[in-house]
Design a protein around this nucleic acid. Structure first.
Lengths: 334, 334
DNA sequence: CTGAAAGCGCTTACAG
DNA sequence: CTGAAAGCGCTTACAG
């Protein structure tokens, strides 16, 4: 099964490769009608399919982008990827997916491989562990967009949620309902992952603006395996919280497990809000009040920004942080 | 910012491009220690990164595969993708993701684009709507693997669940608990999507083998928007089912909604089993009995089969159907 | 309106 | 042990 190339098409239609190439690139300006027809039928007869690798080599672009996410098993990543893929498809771009699993070494390997493959740009949920590498891409003006996390020492266009606001509106809702003993739980804070840190900030801000004292016992930033214990501490204290904000899916599940195991009733004994509007929130009993992010819009924006950068590689854009507004979806857990 | 090429490295280290290439491909056999060192330091100094596009053109392989799934928002697809990506990463392959959304036109476009990009192989959840195209890939011996769905007119290696068994063990469990009025609901059957059809077959087989008559009123293959109505019909009949098997996530959610709206209690008034062990099944109240598939193993197998095929392009392998065993996870909804 | 030629950045027989 | 040369399949300025 010999591969058919442009040369075969040229021979078959008695023109030169140049002309075939013009045809393929729809530069018909000066092309004879007959030539056009001959090429067309040769292509069909031979079942010719252009080789994009050869074209890419010559044109120095691949119409392919890379996306490095934390983990595609997280519903947030999945939705972002889907939105990116849709935008890329409309623009005849392809997307290569990589799971860095929050591991800087894996992230570095992927970035290097993607660049070796000559992708035209990269969208990354940065681990934060490869500052020099990010920096070098910035200096080279390689098209790069960050999603979900901000690295403030770096000037990279970034798309993320207004995390502070997300926690703020949740806590405000609790306060309006009369709660003052409000707990918050999220994943480990030691790596200063943007959304976690900012959500805690928003939580504190809402409390202090409303004159409610901040108690450290109510604030838990823990690894998943320690959450159960953390919750126990919080709930067995003298003044257990009457409301709790779960800052992401993982901690929400831990809270729900704790609630079930200890037979607490929602919302009577404990009011609950989760950030990240997972599908199951709505079919849970009772349906859960959540703060949702406009995930598809965020993914779309990231893709559009990247494609824009790729088109205007040279243009000296102003680096921007794109904050998306969260929204409170009140259901029956508050 | 001029890109540094192999030529630059060669000049910088006073050797020819050939030698640099040998170095990069670790063919050190006859290479002088000093030469090696010079090349090495030139690469580091210049920050040289090989261009895989050029290499691919010459070598006629890209170390990239394409994966065409129905929709990455489905948790089954996501897990398969993740498993594939892991296997590929270990083998230094990249994966391009495409969502065909069960649309044969989209599928066709993607297959053609992927082949133009010279991917080394494709894994696809076939829509079933492009038989000639699949057939032509088979004839060309282009590495191809099907996942989740079987097209029996075609000889393509396929990885899928033993769907019949999945429904069978669920129904058997119901029967053992004394149920005889057992309903089943799944998505539309008109396109003869393998898992749907086979699960209904398994359902029927379990009933007839146990001497329970099959009633068409208990069998619903419907589009999502019609499911609510279908459930109403089933439950308002003279002899409403006391147990129901939801063949996929979508129908499970519809059943749960119906249950909630009509205040049915699970499992007392209705026993329920879902196929596809979605994470929420376990935190639902009550936790749901499900039939789970070994999704990661399936994705892993698909990737391994494809890579194997790519390595031994010429070997005339026997086409196989790989069936994976489901398992019943008994929780509290039965 | 169309073609000859150079070149994209590699790899790979082959020669020495 | 290393290099000169050809070639992978395209595109693109340029000539005519």
């Amino acid at each position: 099964m010999k591969k058919v190339t442009m040369d075969d098409v040229a021979r078959h239609s008695n023109v030169s490769k140049s002309t075939v190439s013009q045809y393929l690139n729809k530069r018909y300006d000066y092309m004879g009608v007959d030539t056009k027809r001959r090429i067309e039928s040769a292509i069909n007869e031979l079942g010719y399919r252009p080789n994009f690798v050869a074209r890419s080599l010559k044109q120095k672009r691949t119409s392919t982008i890379g996306v490095i996410i934390a983990n595609i098993l997280h519903s947030f990543s999945t939705k972002i990827v889907r939105a990116i893929e849709d935008v890329c498809n409309e623009n005849d771009f392809h997307v290569i997916i990589c799971n860095a699993d929050d591991d800087p070494a894996k992230e570095r390997k992927y970035i290097n491989m993607l660049r070796s493959k000559q992708v035209d740009g990269i969208i990354v949920f940065p681990t934060g562990g490869n500052m020099e590498l990010y920096q070098s891409m910035v200096s080279e003006k390689f098209p790069l967009i960050f999603v979900d996390r901000m690295l403030d020492e770096l000037t990279v266009d970034t798309v993320l949620l207004d995390n502070q606001e997300a926690a703020y509106i949740a806590v405000e809702h609790f306060l309006n309902l009369g709660h003052t003993r409000i707990g918050v739980i999220t994943s480990s804070l030691i790596h200063k992952i943007t959304p976690r840190v900012e959500r805690i900030e928003g939580y504190k801000k809402a409390l202090s603006e409303n004159g409610v004292p901040i108690k450290d016992e109510y604030i838990k930033g823990l690894k998943v395996e320690d959450m159960k214990q953390g919750l126990r501490e919080m709930f067995t204290s003298d003044e257990p919280p009457t409301a709790i904000l779960a800052c992401n899916d993982l901690s929400l599940i831990e809270v729900l497990n704790y609630v079930k195991e200890n037979g607490l009733s929602i919302p009577d004994e404990l009011a609950l809000i989760g950030i990240d509007d997972d599908p199951f929130a709505n079919i849970f009993s009772p349906p859960l009040t959540t703060v949702s992010q406009p995930v598809f819009e965020m993914g779309k924006k990231a893709a559009e920004l990247l494609l824009e950068k790729i088109k205007n590689a040279e243009r000296e854009g102003i680096v921007q942080i794109y904050r998306f507004p969260p929204s409170l979806i009140v259901r029956r857990s508050t």
